Simulated assay, not measured.
Amino acid sequence: MTPTRITSVDCFVLKLSNDERYLGPTNEPANPTPPAGYAVRPPWRSIYSPRFETLLVRLTTDSGVSGWGEALAPVAPEVPAEVVRRLLAPALIGADPRHVRPIGVRLRDLMRERGHLGGHQADAIAAVDIALWDLAGRLAGLPVHELLGGAFREHVPTYVSGLPRPDDAQRAALAAEWAAKGVERIKLHLGKGVAADLATVDAVRAAAPQVRLAVDAHWTYDLAAATRLARGLTARGGIEFLEAPLAPEDLAGHADLARRTDLPVAVGEAMRHRYDVLPWLRQRAVGLVQPDVARTGITEAMAIAELAAAHHVPTAPHHSVALGVALAAGLHVSAAVEHLSCFEYQPTTTEVGQRILTAPLPGGPDGFAVPTGPGLGVEVDLATVSALAEER
């Protein structure tokens, strides 16, 4: 039997406009940071785009079968696209796409000794890895979760991420709307100061007392403030976890905070691979691991989840601004993870992300059905993607 080979690697850089922005209205300065309208959204430190930006990668074989992947690249997706074109594509052409993990190791090692296990290099590899799994599943006629060893669940539970409104009264009203629709868990995007954060929690709790809450502090606090916040949240009860309380590199600080609170400390979206996560698990600095499949790829997300399970820590995959391909990949991983907590549901992102698919993924605030078709189980609308792409 003649082996199947990859014959082409295509990149599609997308920057999609939408009436409602990710995480809602901003207080950005009148002259946003150039280029492309990127701006910091104080008190958060990262730059954000006014659009939904992403990188899609398509791998095609000599038999004409294609697989799709996506990188979480919310700003400057041109950068990982160039990594794919210049560094990864030459190593992919002629490879057998069914050898997903050996290919992944080969791609990882291309720049490993130069300190590029993470960052844009990892984002590019994540997109390729997802495309490889999609392609391998299509060639085998099996969904990705079957290739990963089988699904533990057919339905992936979710929590609603964010109440994108400008003040506590409007956030509380939106929480009440979600509660009326049966939503049981909501994560608040805060980090606005301990007193302000607790006031938001109180307002939302009063409007939707049956909803369990989580808090994402967006890496804004020092240890003393994070401790006060954690204790205030614990006193209120019904809090699922405290996410990203300290600077993302502060392993010791997170470990110290974890010893001071009964709340699970959640981290993981900034981590790209198992080597990032392992020391955090060993030092008990994390109580909930949140890999983003569009930053890790499927292979590393599963490795991270297995490491977490070995340390008796659940996994709750992160999902923010990536579109429908990344959503499908995250659902397959969530199905195949033994110790799953829940999956992040971004209402606006999910709506925007469905634009690139020929048919939407069924699901929403109450969870998603695990896709059952071959590969990722979704079909990318090539005509739409090609029309929207800024470059190929």
Rank of each mutant, 00 (worst) to 15 (best):
V9P: 08
V313P: 11
G162D: 02
I186F: 05
R236S: 14
A95T: 13
R282T: 12
A329D: 05
R272C: 09
P102K: 07
V313I: 10
I103H: 03
E177A: 05
S63L: 03
I356H: 07
L174E: 07
V352K: 05
A169I: 13
T372N: 04
R86H: 12
E146I: 10
T2D: 12
L110E: 08
E78V: 14
L340I: 01
A206H: 11
P97C: 02
R114K: 06
L110P: 09
A326N: 00
E243T: 06
H273R: 01
D366Y: 04
A309S: 05
P77D: 10
A180M: 04
V325T: 10
N27I: 12
A359F: 02
G104V: 08
E391P: 14
P102H: 06
G363C: 01
A387M: 13
H99K: 13
P245T: 02
A175V: 01
A359H: 06
A206W: 07
W280K: 01
L163F: 04
P374H: 00
P90H: 14
T384Y: 15
L174Q: 09
A308E: 03
A224N: 14
H273E: 04
Q210F: 09
R153Y: 04
P362W: 07
H145I: 09
R295D: 07
E146D: 11
V277C: 05
R392G: 15
A199L: 15
K187A: 01
D134I: 02
G237E: 14
R112V: 01
L331P: 01
A322W: 07
D366I: 05
G367H: 01
Y38S: 15
D96K: 04
F12Q: 15
E351D: 10
I6V: 08
P164H: 01
P43M: 15
R165D: 07
V265I: 13
A226Q: 11
D62Q: 04
P371C: 00
L92N: 07
V293Y: 00
A309C: 09
A252M: 10
A244S: 13
G232Q: 15
W178S: 04
D123P: 13
L55R: 09
D250K: 00
L72S: 14
G150E: 09
G24H: 01
T200H: 12
V156C: 03
A214Y: 03
G69E: 02
N27M: 09
G149S: 04
S341C: 07
Y22G: 07
G69W: 00
A127W: 06
D19I: 13
N18F: 12
A199S: 14
P43R: 13
A196Y: 11
V267G: 08
D62K: 09
L110M: 10
L213H: 08
E154C: 08
P80F: 05
H120T: 15
Y159N: 01
